[in-house]
Design a protein around this nucleic acid. Structure first.
Length: 105
DNA sequence: CGCGGGGCGAGCT
DNA sequence: TAGCTCGCCCCGC
């Protein structure tokens, strides 16, 4: 399984869909959840390809450092930050407390 | 088919 | 805590 990129994309989306509101997940964990232990970068690549109006909670995906992995000042950065705060996720100095908001499965 | 680069991660200094 | 290096995987040249 997970041979074609279709399946991987699918798995990644399903995994992402499991992340509840008010929680966040790291690229690495998302990949693992999707059955790809080394798919962190792929996860990032996919997020990058998602349209801003996608139904998926792409904004709940952050890097293992608890930060948004986008360049500050970019549109996506603001958008993600905004949506997260809107869901009740507090951000301290651009960083999120994974110990509080990280989604575990 | 090699090479460099990316919305990554883990480990060492 | 901040940098750097190395390993992964996927893409474009």
């Amino acid at each position: 399984m997970l041979e074609t990129q279709e399946q991987r994309r699918e798995a990644m989306f399903l995994a992402l869909a499991q992340v509840p509101k008010g929680k966040v997940i790291t690229y690495g964990n998302l990949a693992k959840l999707a059955g790809m232990p080394n798919g962190a970068r792929l996860a990032g690549r996919l997020m990058c390809g998602l349209p801003a109006n996608s139904r998926l909670p792409w904004h709940r995906v952050i890097n293992s450092q608890g930060k948004l992995s986008l360049p500050e000042g970019s549109d996506g950065y603001c958008e993600q930050l905004k949506r997260l705060q809107q869901e009740g996720v507090e951000i301290h100095n651009g960083k999120i407390k994974l110990s509080l908001y990280a989604y575990s499965f």
